[in-house]
Amino acid sequence: MFAVQYDRFGGPEVLHLGTAEAPRPGAGQLRVRVRAAGISPVDVALRSGRTPMGARLPLPHIPGVDVAGVVDEIGDGVDGVAVGDHVFGVLDVAKLGGGSAQFAVLPLWAHKPATMSWAQAGAAGSSVETATRALDLLGLQPGMTLLVDGAAGGVGSVAVQLAAARGIQVVGTARVDNHDFLRRLGATPVTYGPGLAERVDAAGTARVDRALDVAGAGSLPELLQLTGDPAAVVSLADFTAAAHGVRLSMGRLAGEPDGRHGLRAAAELSTEGRFTVPIEAAFPIREATDAHAAVERGSRRGKIVMIVDDAPGT
């Protein structure tokens, strides 16, 4: 099969389109012919060599944990899906990638609704699972107010919508030019940075019951000021969280709730017109270098995704 891969760490230029052995599904898994593959910040961090997880990578490595595609092979013990079905999901995160290719194996999936484009479905998986896991950790109840710090990005924009669907009032931080975008997603926007508590108060929010730090930009002291309780804050990106008494959630750690049920919930919400996956840009797979560079530039409004076809060129 064809696959985007790299055999050394570095910038986007280390990526190339080559060939690799096609994976086969094991028990409880299915294989898809990939139609779209999302690119997440963890893909960029692994490729660059900036994370200790890179020591686990056998090279050459195929990046990507998010895909959508057409089922073409089903492993033992899998029910409720047939060859030819359209699905989206997340690859085995223990293998740290493999989705930017012609074929991929999914242990975690849901049926793709017609209301989701291939690009949206291909970018959805890990953002939905991560956001669902974080919202479950926070113990949200209808009527509560949640502040999402970093609400306009890939995970943040998903968390805003999933929280709103649970009956949560959402306040989201973002740059001023993303405020209208957040309003369309169902959040009250405020600008991020120092002085957050004062801006939240000025926006008419009487209280903040829970806070989710997606950005990892050093906002934990102010999130604690707003909620008054370290147990009411979860971070997805700040490695100083423990020093503040805050939980850091990274990839379905032992003892954490499992966010896999979020995939089916997101599909149902999409069918109802209550959920979308914002896409900032879509690239053909032969332009993987440009796609990864777009993720590295940061400050995105939604996700970056690659469209996979059967004749990508070289």
Results as ranks from 00 to 15, higher is better:
residue 1 M to G: 10
residue 9 F to D: 01
residue 14 V to N: 02
residue 17 L to N: 05
residue 18 G to I: 04
residue 18 G to K: 00
residue 24 R to P: 01
residue 25 P to L: 07
residue 26 G to L: 06
residue 29 Q to L: 04
residue 30 L to H: 00
residue 31 R to Q: 11
residue 32 V to E: 00
residue 33 R to V: 03
residue 41 P to A: 09
residue 41 P to L: 08
residue 44 V to Q: 02
residue 45 A to F: 13
residue 46 L to I: 05
residue 57 L to K: 01
residue 59 L to R: 07
residue 59 L to V: 08
residue 64 G to V: 06
residue 67 V to L: 05
residue 70 V to E: 14
residue 72 D to H: 05
residue 74 I to L: 13
residue 77 G to K: 12
residue 77 G to D: 08
residue 78 V to S: 01
residue 81 V to I: 08
residue 81 V to Y: 08
residue 83 V to A: 11
residue 87 V to T: 06
residue 91 L to R: 05
residue 94 A to Y: 11
residue 97 G to Q: 05
residue 100 S to E: 13
residue 100 S to I: 03
residue 103 F to Q: 02
residue 104 A to D: 01
residue 106 L to A: 06
residue 106 L to N: 04
residue 111 H to D: 10
residue 112 K to F: 03
residue 112 K to G: 04
residue 114 A to F: 07
residue 142 P to Q: 08
residue 144 M to N: 14
residue 148 V to K: 00
residue 153 G to P: 02
residue 156 G to T: 07
residue 156 G to K: 00
residue 164 A to G: 15
residue 169 Q to M: 12
residue 173 T to L: 06
residue 173 T to A: 13
residue 176 V to I: 10
residue 179 H to F: 10
residue 180 D to A: 15
residue 183 R to W: 09
residue 187 A to I: 08
residue 189 P to H: 05
residue 190 V to I: 10
residue 192 Y to N: 10
residue 193 G to S: 13
residue 197 A to L: 11
residue 198 E to K: 15
residue 204 G to F: 10
residue 207 R to V: 12
residue 209 D to Q: 11
residue 213 D to V: 08
residue 217 A to R: 13
residue 228 G to H: 11
residue 233 V to H: 01
residue 234 V to I: 12
residue 234 V to M: 10
residue 234 V to N: 03
residue 235 S to P: 03
residue 239 F to R: 15
residue 240 T to F: 07
residue 240 T to P: 02
residue 244 H to L: 06
residue 256 E to V: 07
residue 256 E to N: 13
residue 259 G to N: 07
residue 260 R to V: 10
residue 265 A to K: 11
residue 274 R to N: 13
residue 276 T to C: 13
residue 280 E to Q: 15
residue 285 I to T: 06
residue 287 E to F: 00
residue 292 H to S: 10
residue 292 H to V: 14
residue 295 V to K: 02
residue 297 R to N: 09
residue 297 R to D: 10
residue 298 G to R: 13
residue 298 G to Y: 04
residue 298 G to H: 07
residue 305 V to H: 08
residue 307 I to F: 02
residue 310 D to E: 15
